[in-house]
């Protein structure tokens, strides 16, 4: 148990306490003692709340679309995806990390990217600047597209697994034999069973995307920035007096995520399948 505390608990506590002390001006370069100035400054600027809201919206849309598409694919192609060739192919996207996915999106959707060249060759655009902004854009289309391509394949595999383990096919047949139509079986049997088994993991993925770093770093815009990008930008500033404000954001983010962890895992036991 000593090892568990040393490896599993102490680093997190040390990191949090250090960030907390720094945010109150009690440690760190140029700090002289306890002050609430950095917290006031962060809340007065409104950038943190904006970043939180922006990150939450991007993460929520990405998770919602990923889950919806994955559910459709998993339910429509259950038998086909369990066949030998496809059952390996659907695992391939798991080998693509976020940084590669972001690079790939950039290569395809940037102004001089692959699709822009195709559009030019078909005569749909006459100049580079006429191609729509799909990366580093205001609507964060590039970020969400990348999140979906990274997360969606995982959900397809998860839903297929739950479909098999929870014997959804047998339950669907039972519902049919009791007089339910196809739509009722899908919406009142299949989808509720799968979502009930996987909602913890869906929420967990929302939290992961909330704190994503590489993808918004490559495909994001200057303002607003996603949380992790904002925190690292604040902490790496040349203006040393601003570092404390970066730690304020880090503390707020850590508290929010920790509360989410408590809400998700304090009552329910995660199963191996969900991990």
């Amino acid at each position: 148990m000593l090892f568990f505390v040393l490896i599993g608990v102490v680093p997190f506590c040390a990191a949090f306490i250090y960030a907390l002390l720094y945010s109150f001006g009690m440690v760190g370069v140029l700090n002289t003692g306890f002050t609430l100035a950095f917290w006031k400054s962060v809340f007065a600027s409104g950038e943190v709340l904006g970043s939180f809201g922006y990150s939450a919206v991007v993460a929520a849309i990405s998770v919602l679309l990923s889950v919806s598409i994955a559910m459709w694919v998993a339910l429509k192609f259950t038998r086909e995806l369990n066949k030998r060739f496809l059952s390996f192919i659907i695992y391939l996207p798991l080998a693509i990390p976020g940084i590669v996915a972001a690079f790939f999106t950039f290569q395809l959707f940037s102004k001089a990217g692959f699709f822009s060249r195709i559009a030019y060759s078909f005569g749909w655009i006459t100049k580079v600047r006429f191609f729509p902004d799909l990366v580093n854009d205001q609507l964060s289309i590039g970020i969400m597209l990348t999140f979906i391509t990274v997360v969606m394949p995982f959900f397809v595999l998860l839903f297929l697994n739950v479909y098999k383990n929870e014997r959804v096919e047998e339950l669907s047949k039972l519902a049919f034999s009791l007089g339910a139509n196809s739509s009722q079986v899908t919406w009142k049997v299949t989808i509720p069973i799968i979502l009930r088994k996987t909602w913890t993991l869906i929420a967990l993925y929302f939290i992961f995307l909330l704190g994503a770093y590489e993808v918004p770093l490559i495909l994001g815009q200057e303002s607003p920035q996603m949380l992790s990008v904002l925190i690292i930008r604040e902490l790496n500033q040349y203006d040393l007096s601003k570092i404390s404000e970066g730690y304020v954001v880090a503390v707020i983010y850590t508290i929010v995520v920790s509360l989410a962890a408590i809400a998700l895992f304090s009552r329910k036991k995660m199963t191996l399948n969900e991990i």
């Binding site: 925190i231 983010y253 998700l264 895992f265």
Partner: peptide, 23 residues
């Protein structure tokens, strides 16, 4: 203890590293 394990697991690694960098 399992709940405590989730805290570092769920936190963005880059933020965790930034807060640990002093140590």
């Amino acid at each position: 203890f399992t709940l405590l394990t989730y805290f570092p697991y769920i936190l963005a690694p880059v933020v965790f590293a930034a807060c640990l960098s002093y140590f």
